[in-house]
Design a protein around this nucleic acid. Structure first.
Length: 422
DNA sequence: TTATCAACATAGACCACATTAAGCC
DNA sequence: GCGGCTTAATGTGGTCTATGTTGAT
């Protein structure tokens, strides 16, 4: 499946930008994200080679494909043949990295066609990459593990850079800060001597970054997980005990769910998103917010969508019904509830509640339950931009104390002024 | 153990106006 | 059914404020 670049519409899209909710070819990615300081903060990663709609989180070394969480699960199901494939997590990046820098974070990057170097402003081209953990990769620029432009600014501090460069084994290249996720910490994939990092987004995060920069050594971290044991620190069998209830899974991941609005960047894309109801992979990608809004509007804050099985059968496939979803709900919404969109393509990982049809092995069920719980945990209630053009207008609209003011009136905030917009 | 207070976190309101959707001819 | 026009509704982001939560005393 070759998805064309959302920007030029000509080249095959390779990069996924969450902030723009766009799939881009390498060339457009660089052109678009070298436009200004805000666009450089956009967190990007590879596009899933399989569905071409979701950001990839895993690179299958064996198959040489980048996969999103869904496709990874489908391809590398614990009970499947491909489950033993060697996989590598894919890091997010922001900034305006060169091909060499991309190759550094993605060793397989050389497989992609070369592109011309963009005209990045000196210093602003500093690349930041982050662990492409589903829980924090697409968070707010300053509150997720990607060090945003302001953090890069801090990294310009000679003291910080001096600490970072030895860590990345380069004294000449741009400073790169790779943060291990909390999941890695709990998973035991990081050496036990690695300092503990506080959950990103907490008030202690600033301190944590310093801690990390002092003691953390990227070279010590093996980002390749070959087994459940390596990833979670326990065996696949044991993991069911850990996930026995939500309290356990909460403490296991120690993740902090956030409802903070995320998209504060000025979009360079001025293309109206597809109208509601039309199938659009980009919309599906950000349907989290839709479902969150839907759920919240119907059930109040902190409402938790709950999954119910209708146990109905239609054409030998499952039919799922969910509560708390409104008419705005899409296939992506069902994903949010833990159920993959896959069932709607006839490849349900779930098995029917009907005992007569419950022929699948327990391991498969456990795997499905674990997927559901992991997905439930990884849900993010990000703000979704439905109309990029309106966002673009709001971004440039002048304000007084945060409120829009009529054109021509005196204002105290000019979003076009770089000193305020950064 | 309970009450009080301060500090902190969070949700919602507010604003202008371009865009969208619906209705009508 | 299609196109053009009118009109009401919608959505966008930064800031402020009210309310809720947490921890210390």
């Amino acid at each position: 499946m070759n998805h064309l670049c959302d920007f030029c519409g000509e080249q095959r899209s390779i990069i996924y930008c969450s902030s723009d909710a766009a799939s881009l070819c390498l060339s457009c990615d660089r052109n678009v994200h070298s436009a200004n300081a805000l666009s450089r903060r956009h967190s990007r990663t590879l596009l899933c080679d399989r569905c071409s709609a979701q950001p990839a989180v895993i690179r299958c070394i064996e198959q040489s494909v980048s996969l999103c969480q869904n496709c990874d699960w489908n391809s590398h199901d614990a009970s499947g043949v491909a489950s033993g494939h060697k996989r590598q997590t894919i890091n997010c990046y922001s900034g305006c990295p060169s091909a060499e820098e991309l190759s550094r974070i993605w060793p397989f990057f050389q497989e992609f066609p070369p592109v011309a170097e963009p005209d990045c402003e000196k210093g602003l081209g500093l690349m930041t990459i982050s662990e492409n953990n589903i829980s924090n990769c697409w968070g707010p620029p300053e509150s997720n593990s990607t060090l945003g432009i302001s953090s890069v600014g801090k990294m310009k501090d000679p003291k910080v850079v001096d600490k970072l460069n030895p860590l990345i084994g380069s004294s000449s290249g741009p400073a790169i800060c790779l943060l291990p996720s909390t999941a890695d910490q709990t998973a035991g994939s990081v050496d036990s001597t690695t300092p503990k990092l506080d959950c990103v987004g907490t008030k202690d995060f600033e301190f944590s970054k310093d801690d990390f920069c002092e003691d953390f050594n990227v070279n010590d971290v093996d980002m390749t997980f070959q087994s459940y044991e390596q990833l979670f620190g326990v065996s696949h069998n044991q993991i069911n005990h850990i996930f026995d209830d939500d309290d356990d899974i909460d403490s296991f991941f120690d993740l902090r769910e956030t409802s903070a609005a995320n998209s504060n960047h000025q979009d360079e894309f001025v293309g109206e998103a597809s109208s509601a109801g039309q199938p659009n992979p980009m919309l599906a990608t950000h349907s989290n917010a839709v479902s969150a809004n839907s759920v919240m509007s119907n059930r109040g804050k902190n409402a938790d969508s709950r999954l119910f099985f209708s146990a109905r059968h239609a054409h030998s496939s499952l039919s799922l019904s969910f509560s708390g979803l409104t008419g705005e709900s899409s296939a992506g919404d069902y994903q949010d509830c833990g159920g993959s969109s896959v069932p709607f393509r006839g490849e349900s990982p779930w098995f029917p509640a009907d005992p007569e049809n419950s022929q699948l092995p327990t391991a498969s069920r456990d795997s499905a339950v674990m997927r559901y719980k992991e997905k439930k945990k990884a849900r993010k209630f990000e703000k979704k931009i439905r109309y990029a053009t309106r966002k673009a207008m709001a971004d440039v609209r002048r304000r007084v104390k945060g409120r829009f003011v009529k054109a021509g009136e005196a204002y105290d905030y000019d979003p076009l002024a770089q000193t305020r917009s950064c």
